[in-house]
Amino acid sequence: MLKINNLHARVEDKEILKGINLTVNAGEVHAIMGPNGSGKSTLASVIAGKEDFEVTEGEVILDEENLEDVSPEDRAHKGVFLSFQYPVEIPGVSVTNFMKTAINESRKAKGLEDMPAKDMLKLIREKSELLEIDRKFLSRSLNEGFSGGEKKRNEIFQMAMLEPKLAILDETDSGLDIDALRVVANGVNKLKTKDNAVIVITHYQRLLEYIVPDFIHVLHDGKIVKSGTKELALELEEKGYDWLKNEAVVK
């Protein structure tokens, strides 16, 4: 589904990604771990098409299509979803209105009519129940005055509504208490099918107890320095990232 070949990217003059190779197939869950500043969030932004980052080499391919000239909104229409580490506030725009606009814009891009209000309501009801979200929450302005946990839950609610092919969760666990973490993780697990894929970006092994990855990759200084199965996370928890940093230097 997703194939990243020798991806280099920089912001202004600073090179952040220095040759990433990654293949994600439908039905898989991948975790990307690594210390601060290793390029995890940059990788997420580059896949989503944020133009602050300049791709200097390599490519991102989604379903055989090179995404190089594809706008962020078209990537979204093709099924790429990014759960933001720091979701932005949009005052005066309710969660419901925002989702309605997002869904109908995607439908428009596919040549479909707006979703009938009845279906939209049904969808909202289903997905808010799935994530244990109070309906009143949906009429509040997007992320305005939301707690950290509410913001992250709202991101996963949007993911549920948009049913993406490839979901990238950027530090979704940060700022969540253990109960919220469980709700969010359960939501993600329920949305998982054999046709979609999830990339989980995280610092800690904790989230991976709830969302169990098929593969784990460790990012260091813009490169994937180690890949493995879920056991790798435990090893990292035990030995810390320094172990891999040293190993990378030795290589």
Binding site: T101, E105, Q158
Partner: peptide, 28 residues
């Protein structure tokens, strides 16, 4: 903000529509 626009873009909303959405929210 560019961040607001990118957030909307990422949800499939193009820049033009995103500005309209933000302005409407502001004026609500």
């Amino acid at each position: 903000g560019e961040d607001q626009i990118f957030y909307c873009n990422q949800r499939g909303i193009d820049t033009e529509k995103a500005i309209a959405l933000i302005v409407n929210g502001f004026s609500k």
